[in-house]
Amino acid sequence: MHALLSAPDTPTGVRAGQAPEPVPQAGDVVIEVECFTLVARNLDHAATLPPGSVPGFDAVGVVRRAADDGTGPAPGTRVATLATGNAWAQLRAVPTHELAIVPQRVDPGQAGVLLVPGVSALRAIRRLGALTGRRLLVTGAAGAVGHFAVQLGRLAGAHVIAAVRDHGSRERLAALGADEVVTGLDQVSAPVHGVIDSVGGPALAQAFDLLAEDGLIQQVGASSKQPTTFVPYQMVGRRRAIEGFWAGDRFGPDLAYLLDLLADGRLARLDGERAEWGDIDAIARRLRADDAPRRMVVTLRHDLSARPDADR
């Protein structure tokens, strides 16, 4: 089958090639991949993998072969999948507990763009505990995780403070549910109960000072690419914590929840620029441009679904 393969010796970190078709376990479905999403750091990660392996985390497609153990959806069902590896290919085998059915009202590309940042935001917010009536700070709120963290924080009953680099996103974030939009953490008054941080660097230390007693920061990213420095005794005197984010696994129920919110209009979609996967070099250049999209939807074209009995 056609696939994008890890190629550490190339400028993009991947190359187009052929990979063995997946051999499913009893609890796996095999899907014909329609699309997956990319950001530049996905390509950077792919370059760290063994040469010839198939990278990727999320993929949306149609079930070609149901799970042998009787779990999961039937052939012909469109599903969203999230798991480590083997996503950038025509076919993907994935355990049934790592997928959810895509509602008919949701476009496959919109579903794909939701998966990684949506689950990251949802699980990070859960780690903060009860948020009803409490203040939630979201740094890097203009990014993909921030897009969903603002909305999910609002749904959880929090007073949401969205921090961005400039005011260009103010109206959009207010429409998503942000109660306040700030361009610097010096504009935020303490205390905040929780922080979803995707910036890192000096902002992380500054956010730490805003935490209430027993407050928690979930660090889900480090877009600043800067180290964080704490002054002596900054972390002494109150119970508060920074926790590194770990996505975990068994994503199926969370994917279903998020897709249902999207289908019902309770979660605003995140638009992704679209491209066909034939020219990975052009896709890589676009993702590394100064005006790169927050996520790119890479679509596949193949005729496997037209040949259900073809020899694969």
Results as ranks from 00 to 15, higher is better:
residue 32 E to R: 14
residue 235 M to E: 09
residue 193 H to M: 03
residue 243 E to P: 01
residue 159 H to Q: 14
residue 28 D to F: 02
residue 177 G to Y: 06
residue 142 A to H: 04
residue 49 L to R: 14
residue 169 S to C: 03
residue 227 P to T: 06
residue 54 V to Q: 03
residue 182 V to I: 13
residue 165 R to S: 15
residue 222 A to R: 12
residue 189 S to K: 11
residue 211 L to M: 12
residue 87 A to N: 10
residue 273 E to N: 00
residue 128 L to R: 00
residue 3 A to E: 10
residue 294 R to W: 12
residue 270 L to E: 11
residue 161 I to E: 01
residue 62 V to C: 07
residue 126 R to Q: 15
residue 222 A to K: 03
residue 14 V to Q: 02
residue 22 P to C: 01
residue 68 D to C: 03
residue 273 E to W: 12
residue 243 E to T: 08
residue 80 A to G: 14
residue 226 Q to T: 08
residue 110 Q to F: 00
residue 80 A to K: 04
residue 141 A to K: 06
residue 162 A to Q: 06
residue 26 A to L: 13
residue 131 L to D: 00
residue 120 S to F: 02
residue 166 D to A: 04
residue 39 V to K: 11
residue 165 R to M: 09
residue 149 A to L: 02
residue 8 P to R: 05
residue 16 A to I: 13
residue 147 H to N: 05
residue 8 P to F: 09
residue 262 L to R: 02
residue 267 L to C: 06
residue 147 H to K: 02
residue 161 I to Q: 10
residue 11 P to T: 10
residue 97 H to E: 14
residue 115 L to E: 09
residue 297 V to N: 12
residue 110 Q to V: 06
residue 105 R to E: 15
residue 37 T to C: 13
residue 69 D to M: 02
residue 187 Q to H: 14
residue 35 C to G: 05
residue 242 I to L: 15
residue 121 A to T: 00
residue 266 R to Q: 15
residue 117 P to K: 11
residue 302 H to C: 05
residue 300 L to W: 12
residue 190 A to R: 14
residue 301 R to N: 15
residue 213 E to P: 08
residue 80 A to Q: 05
residue 45 H to T: 12
residue 178 A to G: 10
residue 240 R to M: 07
residue 288 R to M: 03
residue 205 A to I: 07
residue 266 R to V: 02
residue 150 V to W: 01
residue 53 S to Y: 03
residue 222 A to F: 09
residue 193 H to P: 11
residue 166 D to P: 09
residue 240 R to L: 08
residue 301 R to M: 08
residue 265 G to V: 03
residue 55 P to H: 06
residue 158 A to Q: 06
residue 201 G to S: 09
residue 255 L to C: 07
residue 19 A to K: 08
residue 85 G to A: 13
residue 220 V to R: 00
residue 97 H to N: 13
residue 220 V to T: 13
residue 277 W to L: 11
residue 97 H to A: 07
residue 241 A to T: 15
residue 87 A to V: 06
residue 234 Q to P: 01
residue 175 A to Y: 04
residue 225 K to I: 02
residue 93 A to Q: 03
residue 146 G to E: 07
residue 269 R to F: 06
residue 150 V to R: 01
residue 246 W to L: 15
residue 146 G to C: 11
residue 180 E to Q: 14
residue 246 W to A: 14
residue 147 H to S: 04
residue 295 R to Y: 02
residue 112 G to D: 15
residue 20 P to N: 04
residue 30 V to L: 06
residue 230 F to Y: 14
residue 164 V to Y: 04
residue 262 L to F: 05
residue 52 G to T: 07
residue 304 L to D: 01
residue 154 R to I: 05
residue 164 V to P: 12
residue 183 T to I: 11
residue 77 T to K: 07
residue 49 L to E: 07
residue 80 A to C: 12
residue 20 P to A: 13
residue 277 W to R: 09
residue 108 P to Y: 12
residue 70 G to I: 10
residue 20 P to E: 14
residue 77 T to V: 15
residue 274 R to I: 15
residue 124 A to M: 04
residue 85 G to P: 10
residue 234 Q to D: 12
residue 37 T to H: 11
residue 133 G to M: 08
residue 272 G to W: 12
residue 3 A to V: 13
residue 20 P to K: 03
residue 31 I to K: 01
residue 258 L to R: 00
residue 295 R to H: 05
